[in-house]
């Protein structure tokens, strides 16, 4: 079950599509649900499926296809860092090593204090700004040198 606010947001998304095409709103509905819950539990996907009149498995297909949807509970901040070729050529791997050392976690792991989860991402369309990373799917951080990373982690730890 989602909160009234989330449902309002989903209803707003639904107004963008014809009323017999409710499933068109599945991606935004899942994003809204994830914003509220932090991740997409089976019950949450079931709820979205029922709300949009879709088979649950069809919602699951979408949720597993895009890796911005979290199918497991995560730390407070999800850091997704791009490791595709252009970024890799411009220091992404070093940035990854730095983050991993600082937080003491590898990819797909959550720090002991429950604050950070590290994910490997695909090209974010900002290759010129490499290395790039995303915080909680929403905030894009560019040119992530070790110093910048230290600053960011400190800010997020507060």
């Amino acid at each position: 079950m989602l909160s009234v606010e989330s449902i309002k947001k989903i209803d707003h998304e639904l107004t963008k599509y014809p009323s017999d095409q409710k499933q068109s709103a599945v991606m935004s509905a899942l994003a809204i649900a994830q914003d509220e819950k932090g991740w997409l539990a089976t019950e949450t996907m079931d709820f979205v499926a029922r709300y949009l009149g879709m088979p649950p498995i069809a919602v699951y297909e979408v949720a597993t296809f895009y890796n911005m949807y979290n199918l497991q509970p995560l730390g407070k901040c999800k850091i997704t860092i791009c490791t595709n070729l252009p970024c890799a050529l411009s220091g992404a791997n070093e940035a990854v090593a730095h983050i991993q050392k600082k937080l003491g976690i590898g990819f797909n792991e959550t720090s002991a204090d429950g604050k950070f989860t590290l994910k490997e991402g695909e090209c974010m369309g900002a290759c010129g700004d490499a290395p790039v990373l995303l915080v909680n799917n929403k905030r894009m951080c560019s040119f992530m040198s070790d110093d910048m990373i230290d600053q960011l982690l400190e800010e997020l730890s507060k």
Binding site: T42, P55, P56, I57, A58, Y60, E61, T64, F65
Partner: peptide, 22 residues
């Protein structure tokens, strides 16, 4: 008339399955 199987994941991780446990 009822979608009981679907394809989850993508690329190398794609697999055919039913919704969690059904």
């Amino acid at each position: 008339g009822i979608m009981e199987l679907g394809m989850a994941g993508r690329g190398e991780h794609a697999e055919i399955l039913s919704f969690v446990g059904s």
